[in-house]
Design a protein around this nucleic acid. Structure first.
Lengths: 146, 146
DNA sequence: GGTAAATAGTGGGTAAAAGTGTTTTTTTGT
DNA sequence: ACAAAAAAACACTTTTACCCACTATTTACC
């Protein structure tokens, strides 16, 4: 579904234009109805087509919430989820609370990860790409060959 | 599949001509559909014929993403992957985000590594060739004989 | 080795699409 | 009912994809 990264601009009203290559796909998959919410691990936003969101949402709701960490995850993800619809020009208005959560200003990067997309501030995204992690690699990565 | 290195030029619009010796191979292997993405370890790009990419993609998607390092790898590799098709003149347009990631300007080097190819800026590639590394060799290299 | 022909590589131009900003209308709250 | 804010509609600007034409390089043949 989503693939590749591309930079996009947010206008003064907090709107972003969804890249045209996704518009047809989204129209087919969910009538242009997407759900956007906080990514609980990093300060970015997750974007799902409405049907995918229902699966994710159900999975998270089903977690046993006696653990504090589970409750926190539920609050961040479910509590920030907003359903949005593309306007006639293929734009969506990002809610102010989410803009603040992910620290978004004018320059953003939309990152496609198959079933979902992530929305980052350009600054944070570049920081991620620059990051060099000296921690030992987990077993799974050591044996990986690309 | 890919072998040997050769220098190629990027034009003002960010297009590169795929060397003719690969065109027939690519047409046969994947109808000219290739996937290009970030190399997560060095600042260069990886180029795969579409079928090979599917294997790599599946491997990376399957990694447990509770590790931060895995998420970062997934974002860099999957999040930057773009499927491209050769145009009528055997060229592809490199997406702006990838050009920036690998710091590409006019002069590039395409390096064939069998199942994939790497694309470097000429400058970075030459720096790599000049590099001398005094670190101890890993086990796999100690037992190697060329 | 030289010449000609074919193939590879390069550089724009243009029409269509995508993106962006502004105006107008509608809604909501006081 | 009026003012403010939000949403929708509209109009303009920029970018991109596709096409065509030219130049350079390689290959083949004499």
């Amino acid at each position: 579904m989503f693939q590749g990264s591309q930079s996009i601009n947010m206008d003064a009203k907090g709107r972003i234009a969804i890249p045209s290559k996704y518009r047809d796909l989204l129209a087919a998959a969910c009538n242009g109805r997407i759900v956007i919410t906080a990514n609980p691990y990093e300060r970015c936003l997750n974007i799902y087509p409405e049907p995918q969101w229902r699966d994710v949402s159900a999975k998270i709701s089903a977690l046993p919430n006696s653990h504090k960490q589970v409750r926190t995850l539920q609050r961040r993800v479910l509590g920030n989820a907003m359903e949005l619809e593309l306007d006639a020009n293929g734009r969506v208005l990002l809610p102010a609370t989410l803009r603040k959560y992910a620290d978004l200003d004018k320059k953003l990067v939309l990152v496609g990860l198959n079933e979902k997309a992530e929305l980052w501030s350009e600054e944070s995204w570049n920081a991620l790409l620059d990051e060099t992690d000296d921690a030992p690699l987990p077993e799974e990565l050591l044996s990986l060959s690309l």
